[in-house]
Design a protein around this nucleic acid. Structure first.
Ligand code: MN
Ligand code: MN
Ligand code: MN
Ligand code: MN
Lengths: 216, 216
DNA sequence: TTATATTTTTAGACAAGCCTAAAAATTTAA
DNA sequence: TTAAATTTTTAGGCTTGTCTAAAAATATAA
């Protein structure tokens, strides 16, 4: 239905739309590691196909159709990530690149059967919600550890940085999805955070605290 | 590593090489539903990359590298077909088109884990052998029913025609992989074949007999 | 063995998706 | 409010993979 490039642009615009409703050419170029001029070319094509709202120099937003397509790509991405971790025993830091390819397999019937085969999971290995076959999903209501009050207690439920390096670091520190933690102290000098987990104290940097999300 | 188009050309050349070692431009064009001029263009590129042996007007054959690549694509295709049938409960006539897309997912680690997950199957849903991770597989030694002697007895083990229409027909007649049959009679006038299966007589046309393979 | 038919290649063009360099529009700063 | 900086678009070009039409090579038939 849509080309690989079109799907990747729609996904990038969707992702950037989470932060600000109107997305700029340069933001898209950065997200896709391409050039602004290439982005402009594609934006004209996507607007032509009624997948985005676009007026020159004004940035873009997804149309309803565009958003539906984007959510469907995300559904496929996250279901394949779940499959790779739960069925093929990959680690959570190994699956993103493979899912980037697999998300473009087009059959709806295939993805619905895969969903059923795995028991209709609702979260991917990184804690992100998996849209159902209708495209419905509840957005996570999570906060970065750096933004919660002292003595707040919660469950590690997601990450902001999906890089292998970050995920491997978390794995090593046992800071994985589902773990219960308490924020003991935030050192004002450099925003280092002291956590309690499994009755032990643990120190994480400001950067890590910014990228690790908990449900209170 | 290789583009979608390159992989499809290599697979087509491999398939056509089964019949005759030197493959013609027109044969490839027909197999890929494209034009002879497009094939010539691609053949120059594949020769440049040392994937095929090509001299103008003389047809092509795969180099060792080219064959290795082709066998690997076939491994991926057949493993995904097996997955779709055995794990996602698709019927054998529904999986080919999906596998045509999935065979291009590049990760070797992924396909090896998938292989392990399914218990290292040796045949795909259509009876074709699945190459192992080293690319080794034993070619089927099968005969079309139309080519065996009267009173020969064997196991249905493969098909020559992979079309949905043919597979659905076989399904309806219960002529599926693993069934034991005996060739009772071949009517000389139109080569209609009378089989015995499950103690019942069954009549199939010359075309069906040509495309249904048995192991004696 | 020469003429004809068929196959294959070449020539030239096009769409998709990308690039660099330059121009135009917008934003920010003086 | 004008000047400078930044962002975005346009212009022109490149690669991949495709096409049609015409030319060249090969195969077949008289
Ligand atoms: Mn991912
Ligand atoms: Mn994920
Ligand atoms: Mn197949
Ligand atoms: Mn098959």
């Amino acid at each position: 239905m849509y080309t690989l490039a079109e799907e990747n642009y729609l996904k990038a615009i969707y992702k950037l739309s989470m932060v600000a409703k109107n997305v700029s050419t340069n933001q898209i170029a950065a997200e896709l590691a391409t050039k602004a001029s290439s982005v402009t070319d594609m934006l004209r094509k996507l607007a032509e196909k009624l997948l985005i709202n676009y007026t020159r120099y004004q940035g873009v937003s997804l149309t309803q159709t565009g958003e539906k397509v984007a959510v469907n790509i995300i559904r496929r991405h996250r279901l394949w990530e779940y499959f790779l971790v739960e069925k093929l025993n990959f680690k959570w830091d190994e699956v993103h690149e493979m899912a980037e390819e697999m998300e473009h397999i087009s059959s709806t019937e295939l993805i619905d059967r895969l969903d059923e085969f795995m028991g209709f999971p609702t979260r991917d290995p990184h804690g992100d919600p998996i849209p159902d076959s209708q495209g419905n999903f509840k957005q996570n209501d999570l906060k970065p550890i750096s933004a919660v009050d002292i003595n707040a207690c919660g469950i590690i439920s997601g990450v902001r940085d999906h890089s292998s390096a970050f995920l491997q670091y978390l794995e090593k520190k046992q800071l994985t999805i589902g773990k219960k933690i308490t924020v003991k102290e935030i050192i004002t000098y450099d925003n280092t955070v002291i956590l309690q987990m499994d009755n032990k104290d643990l120190q994480i940097s400001r950067d890590v605290a910014n990228n690790l999300l908990i449900a209170l």
